[in-house]
């Protein structure tokens, strides 16, 4: 099992204690200026109702722990292959459990916790939407894979030949999997390199990150998503 201890040693040189219950991570780490909360998943978890509830509880516990004191940052570790696919999970209403998790994340933001997501491994679709993708700042670590669906499955569903998709993937960031494409579209704030000082980078992200959703603006500036901000503005300003 991948308990991410090598990652935590790099992030938290001043110490950490992160427990791994199944695929769910919960604990604290100290990047050099005090403890921050750590919540996340490992082993490319397929997020089901159980995991969604465990993540939601961990977020609520972080909020409750800091009641009456300065809210500490929460580091989300995202490593998910997406949502669990099962009839039982659908009958339970997995989307509602994801919505609950998203609400807990939003509560943490409102209560003043800075939310920093680190993608270590995979970040795919539904499992990412309700959790890591709601962070104030989102970082891809080296080797991180970010996608909605792989190109072969997309070719099957859209009925566009794989060769055509592969060709377009080289020029268009909007559907090709990859952390760099998400960076160009503003969906990932930073890509950390292996040689970077991750502890220092995490400290400065926590200090600098605001709570406004800047992704559409970043996507415009970086040229990967030219319409998201402009069209929303048109709607806001329409006569």
């Amino acid at each position: 099992m991948d308990d991410k201890s090598a990652l935590f040693r790099r992030l938290f040189p001043a110490g950490h204690d992160v427990a791994c219950q199944g695929p769910v991570l919960q604990g604290w780490g100290d990047a050099g200026d005090g403890r921050m909360h750590v919540v996340g998943t490992t082993d490319h978890a397929a997020i089901d109702t159980r995991i969604a509830l465990d993540l939601a509880r961990a977020v609520l516990e972080a909020v409750a722990q800091d009641a009456g004191r300065a809210p500490r940052p929460i580091v989300f570790v995202a490593d998910t292959q997406g949502q669990a696919l099962s009839r039982h999970e659908e009958l339970l209403g997995l989307n509602g459990y994801f919505a609950h998790l998203a609400r807990c994340v939003h509560l943490a933001r409102q209560q003043g916790h800075r939310l920093v997501t680190l993608i270590d491994g995979e970040a795919v679709s539904g499992g990412f939407l309700a959790f890591g993708l709601l962070g104030d700042a989102i970082v891809a670590l080296p080797g991180a894979e970010v996608r909605v669906m792989d190109l072969r499955a997309m070719a099957r569903i859209t009925r566009i030949p794989l060769e055509r998709l592969a060709e377009l993937a080289r020029t268009s960031p909007v559907f090709a999997p990859g952390a760099e494409n998400y960076w160009r579209m503003g969906g990932i704030h930073a890509l950390w390199a292996p040689q970077d000082d991750w502890g220092a980078a995490l400290r400065s992200l926590c200090a600098e990150t605001g709570t406004e959703d800047q992704r559409a603006r970043l996507g415009t500036e970086r040229g990967g998503r030219r319409l998201a901000l402009a069209i929303a503005r048109q709607v806001r300003d329409a006569a």
Binding site: L129, R147, T158, D213, R215, A228
Partner: peptide
Amino acid sequence: GVRLHEANAGLLAISEIMRA
């Protein structure tokens, strides 16, 4: 859900809808 023809942009758009 996400429009697969522009999957990454669609995923980010839904996240932005949630925030808004």
